[in-house]
């Protein structure tokens, strides 16, 4: 609107102009999404074509054995259950440890604070691969024999717990001092303040990054295959791949399964995040 003209004509036109502008912006956003989607499709086609064995401008693409894939599809897919089992058990353990470590970090009792920082430092300072082997191969020397699954879950849980404690610590720190003061002024004990006021708000902050960790963990669960006793996707893929010298096909299949799993999990996570964002805040 250029002026507060009294003709009414200008006043009527102005909103429709805004409307047009808005529509143009919407169109632009839609176009962007469509084009990104198309490009994704093309990239995917190129990737598939690369493994098609066809001749392209005199360059021979990679030939894979579809017979092998058909024969071993079900065997490798059979590992999905174990992979998810390891991931779910580990994330539960990791969440509990992360919460304890984050709370320990807030403690004013020196041994508790020390225990928390010691744990995080030790675990983050050593490789996950080593930790898995430690629980599976080193402990038997001390007379403690763990199953592959148990050793794997223990190692993954401890490892991710240490990293996730930082997420939880940030979540706790995101709750303002005023919130604690309001709770204290009402007469709440420190424990009531934590349980009723701080934790619920910290959790809301921590849920989306915890989802990311869970997705990362489904992939790191492949390391548990190193124990040789957890028959998850990676273990199955390397087993049939090595035995029949078809590692290429076997690993491609495993890769597709992991990729699909993370796509589904990312989708689930985005749904949860939208819910949280829309929620009552």
């Amino acid at each position: 609107m250029r002026s507060d003209s009294t003709t009414g004509h200008v006043v009527k036109l102005a909103p429709s102009q805004a409307e047009l502008l808005y529509e143009a912006q919407q169109r632009q956003a839609r176009n962007f999404r469509t084009n990104v989607g198309l490009s994704w499709g093309i990239l995917l086609l190129i990737l598939v074509y690369l493994f098609s064995g066809q001749n392209f401008l005199g360059i021979k693409t990679i030939q894979i054995d579809f017979e092998f894939i058909r024969n071993n599809m079900i065997f490798i897919a059979g590992g999905l259950g174990e992979t998810l089992l390891v991931s779910v058990l580990s994330i539960v353990l990791a969440t509990i440890l992360a919460l304890l470590a984050a709370l320990g970090r807030l403690s004013t009792i020196p041994p508790v604070y020390a225990l928390s920082t010691f744990y995080v430092s030790l675990i983050r300072g050593t490789p996950l691969y080593l930790q898995i082997f430690f629980f599976f191969l080193a402990l038997p020397q001390l007379g403690i024999v763990l199953t592959g699954l148990f050793a794997g879950v223990l190692a993954l849980g401890l490892n991710y717990g240490a990293y996730m404690s930082e997420i939880f610590r940030a979540g706790l720190a995101s709750v303002g001092k005023g919130q604690r003061e309001a709770a204290i002024a009402l007469g709440m004990t420190p424990w009531q303040t934590m349980k009723r006021v701080v934790l619920p708000q910290a959790m809301r902050f921590a849920i989306p990054p915890t989802g990311n960790e869970f997705i990362a963990m489904t992939k790191d669960s492949a390391l548990v295959s190193a124990t040789g006793f957890v028959h998850e996707v990676m273990w199955r893929a390397t087993r049939v791949g090595r035995a029949q010298f078809h590692n290429l096909e076997a690993l491609i299949m495993a890769a597709i399964f992991y990729w699909l799993m993370t796509l589904v999990l990312s989708y689930v996570q985005s749904v949860i995040e939208t819910r949280l964002a829309k929620g009552d805040r």
């Binding site: 303002g176 309001a182 002024a185 009402l186 007469g187 004990t189 006021v197």
Partner: peptide
């Protein structure tokens, strides 16, 4: 101290309502 807090109500500059509760 706890008993004193029960006898006093406090109103803050920044309100400090709990955002996760109605």
């Amino acid at each position: 101290i706890h008993d004193v807090r029960l006898k006093t109500g406090m109103v803050f500059q920044e309100f400090n309502l709990f955002p996760h509760m109605s």
